[in-house]
Deep mutational scan, measured.
Amino acid sequence: MEVRTIKVFTTVDNINLHTQVVDMSMTYGQQFGPTYLDGADVTKIKPHNSHEGKTFYVLPNDDTLRVEAFEYYHTTDPSFLGRYMSALNHTKKWKYPQVNGLTSIKWADNNCYLATALLTLQQIELKFNPPALQDAYYRARAGEAANFCALILAYCNKTVGELGDVRETMSYLFQHANLDSCKRVLNVVCKTCGQQQTTLKGVEAVMYMGTLSYEQFKKGVQIPCTCGKQATKYLVQQESPFVMMSAPPAQYELKHGTFTCASEYTGNYQCGHYKHITSKETLYCIDGALLTKSSEYKGPITDVFYKENSYTTTIK
């Protein structure tokens, strides 16, 4: 009895394709271990004539594949690729409408935090270190965002349907971005203890939790000093293409032309909904596939993004 075979390709990165001759009487799992086709788990399936010449994702289970996976995804987590594939199996079914010149995501599976993050990423200057993220990001900007969303979920250790947080998501993504040249110098002034300067680099240099107003941050924000008295913390120097200011959701007025974009969060910790506000020729609110415009805006804002380049204080 002759062994019926077909020729397929296996890959971990969709760049390096490895030619395989597979036995049609055995499952993919018996031949390769966990195997995925377009995100779908085909591990328990036997090869079919229609699979001839198709590319299958496999887990990096030998040295060659491990090197290829690390170079593309910059992670050695053995569960990463499987999590990416199972997320992709959902995100490829989502709709990605162009809204006001940006790629958004039609609401499904509690994905409003991903839509808000995706919209924000198209408006701030950011370059990702893992080629996987950078490639998928370019495709997302062009309207094909399924891979990018699935990668975000995998890097953030999230599953489809789980509630997510924009600030946490951005923080994970910033860790995989090139923020080497970003720098922030802060000064804390206390009447009792004097003053202390701190220099922050990388992710810490672009994120701040405690106030939404970048102007206020430049002037000074009140913080408790270690001595128990009130101290003032203010920005001395900022070198970065953008800054992200966050605070627990509270009524906040966004003035046209003073910011790049913002995240609105309605609801409580267990259950809520994100919308995205962007400042173009007027203010726009993007909620999944829905767009509304207004000249002014007041609502429960939790993150505001500002364009920056270089700032030095005039406070002496």
Score class of each variant (00 low, 15 high):
residue 256 H to V: 13
residue 7 K to E: 14
residue 218 K to I: 04
residue 190 C to G: 02
residue 164 G to W: 06
residue 197 Q to P: 05
residue 35 T to K: 07
residue 38 D to Y: 09
residue 136 A to H: 09
residue 76 T to E: 11
residue 52 E to P: 08
residue 88 L to A: 05
residue 183 K to L: 10
residue 269 Y to S: 15
residue 86 S to T: 08
residue 82 G to A: 15
residue 145 A to C: 08
residue 175 Q to M: 07
residue 75 T to N: 12
residue 14 N to S: 14
residue 258 T to W: 01
residue 140 A to N: 00
residue 194 G to F: 00
residue 7 K to N: 14
residue 62 D to M: 03
residue 295 S to V: 12
residue 84 Y to N: 03
residue 24 M to R: 12
residue 150 A to P: 04
residue 89 N to S: 10
residue 221 V to L: 13
residue 285 C to V: 14
residue 55 T to G: 07
residue 90 H to Y: 14
residue 273 H to P: 02
residue 26 M to Y: 10
residue 16 N to V: 14
residue 291 L to S: 14
residue 49 N to Q: 13
residue 285 C to L: 10
residue 293 K to C: 10
residue 269 Y to A: 15
residue 202 G to C: 01
residue 24 M to N: 12
residue 195 Q to P: 12
residue 276 H to P: 00
residue 135 D to E: 13
residue 166 V to W: 06
residue 169 T to Q: 06
residue 263 S to P: 02
residue 176 H to Y: 14
residue 97 P to S: 10
residue 179 L to I: 03
residue 298 K to P: 04
residue 202 G to R: 03
residue 68 E to Y: 01
residue 280 K to E: 14
residue 212 L to T: 07
residue 288 G to K: 00
residue 214 Y to C: 03
residue 68 E to M: 04
residue 25 S to F: 10
residue 151 L to G: 01
residue 103 T to F: 07
residue 8 V to A: 13
residue 43 T to Y: 11
residue 171 S to F: 15
residue 201 K to M: 11
residue 147 N to Y: 07
residue 193 C to D: 01
residue 264 E to F: 08
residue 157 N to T: 01
residue 87 A to Y: 05
residue 106 K to G: 10
residue 138 Y to E: 14
residue 43 T to V: 05
residue 87 A to Q: 07
residue 52 E to R: 10
residue 108 A to Y: 04
residue 227 C to I: 03
residue 65 L to T: 14
residue 9 F to T: 10
residue 144 E to I: 00
residue 223 I to S: 11
residue 138 Y to R: 13
residue 208 Y to D: 06
residue 37 L to R: 13
residue 67 V to F: 14
residue 224 P to I: 10
residue 68 E to K: 11
residue 276 H to L: 09
residue 215 E to T: 09
residue 8 V to H: 07
residue 200 L to K: 08
residue 284 Y to D: 11
residue 250 A to R: 11
residue 149 C to L: 08
residue 47 P to V: 08
residue 100 N to I: 02
residue 69 A to F: 10
residue 162 E to V: 05
residue 78 P to C: 09
residue 74 H to I: 00
residue 161 G to I: 04
residue 171 S to C: 15
residue 302 T to D: 03
residue 60 P to G: 06
residue 189 V to R: 08
residue 247 A to I: 05
residue 65 L to H: 08
residue 278 T to N: 06
residue 153 L to N: 06
residue 87 A to S: 07
residue 168 E to F: 11
residue 110 N to G: 04
residue 295 S to I: 10
residue 160 V to M: 05
residue 21 V to I: 13
residue 50 S to V: 12
residue 310 S to Y: 13
residue 125 E to P: 10
residue 223 I to M: 10
residue 18 H to P: 05
residue 140 A to F: 11
residue 225 C to T: 01
residue 175 Q to T: 07
residue 14 N to A: 13
residue 207 M to I: 04
residue 305 F to P: 02
residue 216 Q to S: 10
residue 122 Q to H: 00
residue 129 N to A: 08
residue 266 T to L: 07
residue 65 L to V: 09
residue 192 T to A: 09
residue 298 K to W: 13
residue 117 A to M: 08
residue 5 T to F: 12
residue 71 E to T: 11
residue 190 C to D: 01
residue 12 V to F: 07
residue 128 F to Y: 07
residue 39 G to A: 14
residue 9 F to A: 09
residue 266 T to C: 09
residue 97 P to V: 14
residue 272 G to Q: 01
residue 119 L to N: 04
residue 57 Y to G: 04
residue 128 F to K: 04
residue 223 I to A: 13
residue 3 V to S: 13
residue 115 A to C: 14
residue 306 Y to T: 00
residue 76 T to L: 14
residue 310 S to I: 15
residue 139 R to K: 15
residue 79 S to V: 13
residue 260 T to Q: 13
residue 185 V to R: 05
residue 312 T to W: 05
residue 91 T to Y: 03
residue 14 N to P: 05
residue 89 N to P: 07
residue 167 R to Y: 00
residue 176 H to I: 06
residue 68 E to C: 06
residue 28 Y to T: 03
residue 96 Y to Q: 04
residue 204 E to T: 07
residue 80 F to T: 03
residue 276 H to G: 00
residue 287 D to V: 04
residue 130 P to I: 05
residue 184 R to N: 02
residue 227 C to D: 01
residue 165 D to S: 15
residue 57 Y to C: 09
residue 6 I to G: 06
residue 296 E to S: 13
residue 244 M to N: 02
residue 70 F to H: 06
residue 269 Y to D: 15
residue 14 N to Q: 11
residue 191 K to N: 11
residue 13 D to V: 00
residue 4 R to M: 12
residue 148 F to G: 04
residue 241 P to V: 00
residue 6 I to P: 06
residue 310 S to T: 11
residue 187 N to V: 12
residue 5 T to I: 10
residue 128 F to W: 10
residue 132 A to N: 04
residue 130 P to G: 09
residue 119 L to A: 01
residue 33 G to P: 00
residue 205 A to L: 01
residue 19 T to G: 13
residue 227 C to V: 01
residue 124 I to L: 14
residue 24 M to T: 10
residue 239 E to W: 05
residue 223 I to W: 10
residue 107 W to G: 02
residue 181 S to L: 07
residue 160 V to T: 04
residue 133 L to P: 01
residue 79 S to A: 15
residue 123 Q to H: 08
residue 57 Y to D: 06
residue 55 T to E: 06
residue 294 S to M: 15
residue 160 V to E: 05
residue 301 I to H: 02
residue 275 K to I: 05
residue 30 Q to L: 11
residue 38 D to E: 12
residue 47 P to S: 05
residue 232 T to Y: 08
residue 179 L to H: 03
residue 49 N to G: 10
residue 240 S to H: 07
residue 288 G to I: 00
residue 307 K to W: 06
residue 293 K to Q: 14
residue 236 V to Q: 03
residue 20 Q to D: 07
residue 58 V to D: 07
residue 265 Y to K: 02
residue 249 P to V: 15
residue 170 M to Y: 06
residue 274 Y to N: 00
residue 128 F to A: 01
residue 231 A to N: 03
residue 244 M to Y: 04
residue 163 L to Q: 05
residue 233 K to E: 11
residue 276 H to I: 07
residue 194 G to Q: 02
residue 39 G to V: 07
residue 49 N to S: 13
residue 273 H to L: 01
residue 90 H to F: 12
residue 302 T to A: 08
residue 158 K to M: 01
residue 294 S to F: 15
residue 255 K to I: 12
residue 29 G to M: 10
residue 311 Y to V: 10
residue 12 V to P: 07
residue 46 K to A: 13
residue 39 G to L: 07
residue 261 C to V: 05
residue 296 E to Y: 13
residue 297 Y to P: 00
residue 230 Q to W: 13
